[in-house]
């Protein structure tokens, strides 16, 4: 068992299970900074921030995924990502994300109550994350 070089990574959202594969390495945006997990990591639990997940699969290929909200559970050689929102770079519509970024900015400018501001900020964060992930994926393709 100890020579296993991969572990099972699952990404699930309330809408559906979007990823379930053996991977070598993955980096998550935890609430207090990014965390990289290799096989045989100790059991660990943390909420997730908005950000990108970098996944290195069994063949050593990298893929990127945008996540927002939820938490990550590192168990016995398996990792579960329970995200409220999770999209792979290939599913991201950059044009839409850009539009929603400008929308969010104008919302943020108009927002009066703290709740409105928080909602606008969340929308802004989601949009930025999506754009960043799409960019990253495009870059890695060129390499």
């Amino acid at each position: 068992m100890a020579n296993e070089k991969t572990y099972l990574l699952e990404i699930v959202t309330p809408q559906k299970k979007i990823f379930s594969q053996q991977v070598q390495f993955a980096v998550f945006p935890a609430l207090e900074g990014e965390i990289g997990v290799l096989p045989h990591h100790t059991a660990f639990l943390s909420p997730l921030a908005c950000g990108k997940v970098k996944i290195t699969d069994a063949e050593g290929k990298n893929s990127y995924c945008a996540v927002c909200g939820g938490f990550v559970e590192v168990g016995k050689n398996s990792v579960s990502l329970l995200a409220e929102l999770a999209e792979f770079a290939s599913e991201i519509d950059v044009e839409r994300a850009k539009k929603s970024k400008t929308d969010a900015e104008s919302l943020l400018a108009q927002a009066q109550s703290p709740a409105e501001k928080a909602a606008a900020r969340l929308k802004h964060n989601k949009a930025i994350t999506r754009i960043a992930v799409a960019k990253q994926a495009a870059l890695s393709k060129i390499e």
Partner: peptide, 8 residues
């Protein structure tokens, strides 16, 4: 039940 590390 597993002993988890918690962060924060």
């Amino acid at each position: 039940a597993t002993d988890y590390l918690f962060e924060p």
